[in-house]
């Protein structure tokens, strides 16, 4: 939707985690178990969107070509459809000058559902010198 182009977004909750691997971004939704690989300019776009920059502002930073705005709007629509982004409480900031110092490359979004519905239990384990899967002293006298 056109109004989304001027809206500020943020990751849709603490279940959305992401990491930049340089030439790609991986975004995971712990609530659904679905994860995504973002390629092309999508990592930079995701990072800027997650910081609250609007799609239109990001397109401006990429040079403002109408085709680029449409492409970013398309990606935004996909991210919204996957419930990865939600409107932010704060209004969209000024155009994100300097967020995209590189040339625009068609953004790519790949979806992987191998883990769909499976990340309900702690998929991220605490490991420390004190012990694992947990240090006994954290049990509060259990056991």
């Amino acid at each position: 939707m056109d109004q989304d182009l001027d809206t500020a977004f943020c990751p849709a909750g603490t279940g959305i985690i992401f990491r930049d691997f340089g030439d790609e971004m991986v975004v995971a939704n712990l609530d659904t178990g679905i994860f995504f690989s973002l390629g092309g300019s999508a990592p930079a776009i995701w990072a800027a969107l997650a910081e609250g920059h609007s799609a239109r502002g990001i397109a401006t930073a990429f040079g403002g070509d109408p085709g680029i705005l449409a492409s970013i709007g398309g990606l935004l629509g996909q991210l919204r459809a996957e419930a990865l982004l939600t409107p932010a409480a704060s209004p969209a900031p000024a155009p994100a000058a300097g967020v995209a110092p590189w040339a625009f490359v068609t953004p790519l979004l790949e979806r992987f559902d191998d883990l769909q519905g499976l990340l309900l239990v702690d998929p991220i384990h605490e490991v420390s010198e004190a012990g694992w899967p947990l240090a006994p002293q954290t049990l509060g006298g259990a056991g």
């Binding site: 603490t14 279940g15 985690i17 992401f18 990491r19 691997f21 790609e24 991986v26 995971a28 712990l30 994860f35 690989s37 790949e110 992987f112 191998d114 239990v121 702690d122 998929p123 991220i124 384990h125 605490e126 947990l134 954290t138 049990l139 259990a142």
Partner: peptide
């Protein structure tokens, strides 16, 4: 029988989700 302890998950998701994301990227 999976026994949950503490509130390590939300803390871990915030701090160390990197490991999970790295495993996913390796799969990609």
């Amino acid at each position: 029988v999976y026994r949950q302890h503490g509130d390590n998950r939300s803390r871990a998701a915030a701090l160390t989700g990197a490991a999970l994301l790295a495993a996913m990227q390796a799969a990609v």
